[in-house]
Design a protein around this nucleic acid. Structure first.
Lengths: 103, 103
DNA sequence: ACGAGAGTACGACATACTTCATACATTCTA
DNA sequence: TAGAATGTATGAAGTATGTCGTACTCTCGT
């Protein structure tokens, strides 16, 4: 169901920024960050079809941001928070904390 | 020569991340951040043609990251560092400090 | 006024991204 | 074992991005 999880040491920061520079993916990451437990893909209220969501999950996984594993019928996704914080200290927090634009 | 500098309050963080999620632009931003003085466009050792560089400068400007002004024949570019730090506290530092991938 | 320097505008092109519909695979449950 | 639930693969369409060459504008020096 899922496989490739890159070594974060080999990920350039540009790739992480590009991955997070998409509203759907940033939303997903914020959902993941705000829940104590890992989430199943289906439990994330995204605004796109399943097929599109699969695409975005792959981008997040391949850029080292998330980890996926199968659990029965569902796929569980979680942030690689500790690894990211070690690879890119201080990066994730400010992104998650960023406020919405005015208006 | 130049004009549009958006109000940072209206910029979503995704736009900043997407702008920085490109190697050429991240390189430019790092150059700007590492020099005490503002730089002229021509003084930045980018690996693309002038026309392409113009494109990247526009992206940086329109995402609120840089400010440009004309100075004689040259264009001076500078980071909107203080404004960015106020709008997205703690965001820029970790990006600038991120290390290159292993290998 | 002329030419050189610095950057822009425009058009073209290839590639990548985002999105979807449809068909498929896998696993649970009745 | 059949059907439902969950997600993937594939292919297509439309849009956006990154890149360049060329022609242009604006400014400075001579």
């Amino acid at each position: 169901m899922v496989s490739y999880h890159p070594d974060l040491d080999r990920i350039p920061v540009e790739d992480v920024l590009a991955a997070l520079g998409n509203p759907v993916r940033l939303f997903i990451v914020r959902e993941l960050a705000s829940s104590a437990q890992p989430r199943t893909c289906g439990s994330l209220p995204v605004s796109v079809t399943k097929a599109t969501a699969t695409h975005h999950w792959r981008v997040l996984r391949e850029s080292g941001i998330t980890r996926e594993r199968r659990d029965g019928r569902t796929k569980v996704v979680e942030l690689r928070r500790a690894e990211l914080d070690e690879r890119f200290p201080g990066l994730l927090g400010p992104i998650l904390d960023a406020t919405a634009p005015r208006e």
